[in-house]
């Protein structure tokens, strides 16, 4: 084990996979000479050369399509978005090309590609740079999505994403890049579709993903001071979804809060609520409550931004609500 930042863990995963497979290459804006807009690819140009670490023009639709085409031909591109906000420009190639290619070719053309970069809000970046993009991706059959919350998960999930034969989006967080944590040395691969209980408790389940895991843990710590023990389930992988882990937690606590960074309408939480009422209705002692971003574009002013983001207090309040406290 070594203590690494989340950023270093992502770098380690890319190097681990590029060392073992020449078909893996990294393309994106500022990934090579600049070492990555968030320095995630630091040193990789020097290590692998400009054949495999490639600065793209600012052409999200174009370079995403190029990477999808390269994946169709059997290469394994890591397509970096400076932020997933910019990938909205490229969604045609994600949804119409990458997600559907295997199906409409009747299995002839897999698309083993990784889309990665930060999603969601950082600090005062305002409306166009602060949205959680999970729904755009998981809405389409054919795409997989993982959302690592810790350095260890970042290394293991990114490695698994690169090895996977399908398009996998790896959604990171700008505010996570400096988070430090223990990361296994050597080869570390976490299978897609396995949730991780980040905290054990039997009173209420806080189910969440991505950087909201940290908000959930803070809320759980607050609740613990009132002798309420929350189960914090980090999905880690939204598609495939670890349904068994969700149902197990629901069966134990009978009370669920879903916490996510994005908007509520057709959000990830909406799917989780539908799933729980479909498959665990009788286990519930209270309706599931969702905590999300306010249903508004992200405002710039510090006070409004804080108001719009899901807060620790909102999670604590939601937990008390499902506990009828």
């Amino acid at each position: 084990m070594a203590e690494l930042t989340y950023r270093e863990a992502l770098n380690a995963a890319m190097c681990q996979e590029m060392d073992r497979d020449d078909s893996v290459f990294l393309m994106g804006e500022e990934v090579a000479e600049y070492d990555g807009a968030y320095k995630v690819s630091r040193g990789m140009l020097e290590r692998y050369g400009d054949r495999r670490v490639v600065d793209s023009p600012i052409s999200e639709l174009g370079f995403t399509g190029l990477c999808v085409g390269a994946a169709m031909a059997g290469l394994r591109p890591i397509c970096e978005f400076m932020t997933f906000n910019f990938s909205i420009l490229a969604l045609d190639q994600v949804i119409n090309s990458a997600a559907k290619m295997l199906y409409m070719t009747n299995g002839q053309v897999p698309v083993p590609i990784v889309f990665r970069g930060p999603t969601g809000a950082a600090l005062q970046l305002s409306a166009q740079h602060s949205q959680a993009c999970e729904t755009y991706y998981v809405h389409s059959p054919g795409v997989k999505l993982v959302t690592p919350a810790t350095p260890a998960d970042a290394k293991g999930l990114l490695a698994a994403a690169i090895r996977d034969d399908d398009p996998v989006a790896v959604m990171e967080g700008e505010l996570l890049y400096n988070v430090r944590g223990e990361v296994p040395d050597g080869e570390h691969v976490i299978p897609l579709g396995v949730a991780d209980r980040k905290r054990a408790g039997n009173d209420v389940s806080i189910v969440t993903h991505g950087k909201m895991v940290h908000v959930a843990l803070q809320a759980a710590a607050t609740l613990a001071r009132e002798e309420i023990e929350a189960d914090v389930l980090d999905l880690r992988s939204i598609r495939p979804l670890d349904v068994d882990a969700i149902l197990e937690s629901v069966a134990r606590t009978n009370r669920v809060v879903y916490l996510e960074e994005g908007w509520p309408f057709a959000g990830v939480g909406a799917q989780i609520v539908a799933l729980i009422q479909d498959e665990a209705f009788d286990e519930l002692d209270a309706p599931v409550v969702r905590v999300t971003q306010a249903d508004v574009p992200m405002p710039y002013a510090k006070n409004l931004e804080q108001l719009a983001k899901p807060s620790v207090k909102a999670v604590v309040d939601a937990c008390k609500r499902v506990l009828y406290l």
């Binding site: 199906y103 579709g193 495939p240 670890d242």
Partner: peptide, 18 residues
Amino acid sequence: YDHVYAEINEHGRLFLDG
């Protein structure tokens, strides 16, 4: 449902149409 995904492991659920 064939060929939606090239790789389906034993974990998690990929199809959510119930």
